[in-house]
Simulated scan of single mutants.
Amino acid sequence: MSASTVDRRPGGPFLVGRGLLKNYGPYQALAGVDLAIHTGEVMAIVGPSGSGKTTLLHVLAGILRPDGGEVLLDGHRIDQLGEAKRSALRRHEFGFVFQQGMLVGELTAEENTALPLLLAGANRKQALAGARDWLARLGLGGLEKRLPGELSGGQAQRVAIARALAHSPKVIFADEPTGALDTRTGEETTQALFAAAAATQAAVVIVTHDRELAAKAGRIVEIRDGLITGGVMVG
């Protein structure tokens, strides 16, 4: 599947931010952002360092609470939830891929992948079986027992993608997912992420400095000084 043809929007917006404000002392990271994410779409959020793009991702994902505005998931506000409920929401509804993968060094590839399922209360045997299935789908069959230190950078990021998808999230948030990879490995990792998400109809929201990566998304949103300054559909 081509990474340039992954914008699938069968339904309306299911994750919406309205009038989002976020301050860090005197610094205003978000200055009134409105953004809607549709089922199954791939969106890239771009902008210079300090523009507010990572803060926006964290607010949409319920990691941070906004100082103003609201975040709605399937029409229900999540920004007003307490930390315990937002944590549960992240475990069940969202998946995360970070620049460095953030795998647990003492756990094997299959154990890292199974973590979201285990945290959600799944049977260990079933969780590991599901993890192995995702690893195989991402081209990592035979590497299930390897520790993160025994994997290449691209392999480790594929494990992180498998972990993000293992519990069938509605949206995957990816913060500079190829930032620590060389160009070829980054391209392969991007293809793997988009294809795997397409298989489950999960939306993908990517924060990136990489314009080439952004161009492979279905929609590019640009943020500067805490405000959305532009957006374009790709392809």
Rank of each mutant, 00 (worst) to 15 (best):
residue 206 I to A: 05
residue 151 L to T: 11
residue 216 K to C: 07
residue 170 K to I: 00
residue 190 T to C: 02
residue 213 L to G: 06
residue 144 E to R: 09
residue 177 P to S: 14
residue 225 D to C: 12
residue 145 K to D: 04
residue 173 F to R: 04
residue 216 K to E: 08
residue 224 R to G: 02
residue 166 A to M: 02
residue 171 V to Q: 07
residue 165 L to P: 00
residue 194 F to R: 08
residue 208 T to D: 00
residue 180 A to N: 08
residue 219 R to H: 10
residue 155 Q to A: 11
residue 154 G to H: 15
residue 199 A to I: 03
residue 195 A to T: 08
residue 179 G to R: 02
residue 209 H to N: 13
residue 219 R to Y: 03
residue 231 G to C: 06
residue 217 A to K: 12
residue 157 Q to I: 02
residue 158 R to N: 15
residue 159 V to N: 05
residue 220 I to H: 06
residue 176 E to R: 00
residue 145 K to P: 15
residue 152 S to I: 05
residue 141 G to E: 12
residue 226 G to Q: 08
residue 190 T to M: 12
residue 154 G to I: 13
residue 193 L to T: 01
residue 159 V to R: 02
residue 196 A to C: 13
residue 193 L to K: 01
residue 195 A to R: 05
residue 218 G to L: 09
residue 173 F to H: 03
residue 176 E to C: 04
residue 205 V to A: 10
residue 147 L to I: 07
residue 216 K to R: 15
residue 191 Q to M: 12
residue 172 I to L: 11
residue 168 S to E: 15
residue 142 G to Y: 06
residue 148 P to C: 13
residue 170 K to Y: 01
residue 192 A to K: 03
residue 204 V to R: 14
residue 230 G to S: 13
residue 183 T to C: 00
residue 149 G to C: 10
residue 219 R to Q: 08
residue 155 Q to S: 07
residue 142 G to A: 04
residue 188 E to P: 01
residue 167 H to T: 00
residue 186 G to K: 15
residue 207 V to H: 03
residue 200 T to W: 00
residue 167 H to A: 07
residue 213 L to N: 10
residue 182 D to H: 09
residue 180 A to P: 11
residue 217 A to H: 13
residue 216 K to S: 08
residue 230 G to E: 15
residue 160 A to T: 06
residue 196 A to P: 14
residue 216 K to N: 06
residue 152 S to K: 08
residue 180 A to F: 10
residue 227 L to G: 01
residue 198 A to D: 08
residue 161 I to C: 00
residue 214 A to W: 04
residue 229 T to D: 15
residue 188 E to Q: 07
residue 161 I to E: 00
